[in-house]
Amino acid sequence: MPGRLLLWSWQWAPRRVSPIHRSPAFSVRPRTGLDTLPSSRRFLSSAHTPPENAAVAFQSADRLSGRTCMITGGTSGIGFAIAERFLQEGASSVILVGRSQKRLQDAAGRLGVLTGALPNSDNNNFGQVAARAPEDDTQNLNKIRLLLGDVSDAGSWMRELEKEMSSVDVLVNAAGVSISNILPRSDPEHISQILRTNLEGAMLTSRALMRASIRSRARNRTDAAGEGKPSSKCIINVSSLLALKGGTGAVPYAASKAGLLGMTRSLAVEAAASLKDIVIRSNAIVPGYIETPMIADFTPGETGRLKDLIPLHRFGDPREVADAAVFLAQNEYANNCVLNLDGGLSAV
Rank of each mutant, 00 (worst) to 15 (best):
S39G: 14
I78S: 13
M70Y: 13
V97M: 02
G288Q: 07
L146C: 08
N173A: 08
G201R: 03
G176H: 02
A334C: 05
R4E: 15
L261G: 04
D106Y: 10
L171P: 00
T197M: 12
D187L: 07
L260M: 07
I194N: 05
T205D: 07
V238S: 00
P311C: 04
C69Y: 03
R103W: 10
S167H: 15
G288F: 06
A133Q: 05
R63A: 03
Q11C: 06
N237M: 03
R281H: 15
T49F: 09
S178W: 04
N220K: 04
T68G: 03
T68C: 09
S92T: 12
M294N: 11
T138R: 15
M158E: 15
D106M: 09
P230K: 06
V348K: 14
R265A: 04
D277R: 14
Q128P: 00
L306F: 14
E164V: 05
A347D: 07
V279F: 10
R211V: 04
F43V: 07
L345W: 11
F86T: 02
A202T: 02
A296D: 15
M294V: 08
T205N: 08
L44G: 00
T303A: 15
L183S: 09
A273N: 12
P230F: 07
I285F: 11
I82A: 12
L195I: 13
R221S: 05
G316T: 11
E200R: 01
N220Y: 07
K307V: 01
T248A: 10
W8G: 01
R41C: 03
C337V: 03
R281V: 02
A255Y: 13
L204H: 00
P19N: 06
G246M: 08
N181I: 00
V251F: 06
A273M: 05
T36S: 15
F86Q: 03
A296W: 12
D169C: 06
P30E: 05
A81V: 05
H48I: 05
D106S: 12
A218H: 08
V279P: 00
P134Q: 02
P293D: 12
R4D: 10
S282E: 14
L37V: 02
K143M: 06
A225H: 03
S180P: 02
E160S: 14
N140M: 09
T303L: 06
R132V: 02
P287F: 14
A13D: 01
V348M: 12
V28C: 05
A61P: 01
S213P: 06
L147E: 13
V172L: 08
D137E: 14
R16C: 09
V177D: 02
K233T: 00
S178C: 07
P252Q: 01
V129N: 03
R145S: 14
V94K: 07
L146T: 04
F298G: 05
G127A: 03
S256M: 09
G247E: 09
S60N: 01
V94W: 04
A83D: 11
P30F: 10
L104R: 08
P30M: 09
N283Y: 02
W12Q: 03
V172G: 04
A243Y: 13
N124T: 06
L339V: 10
N331V: 02
L111H: 08
L306M: 11
V28F: 05
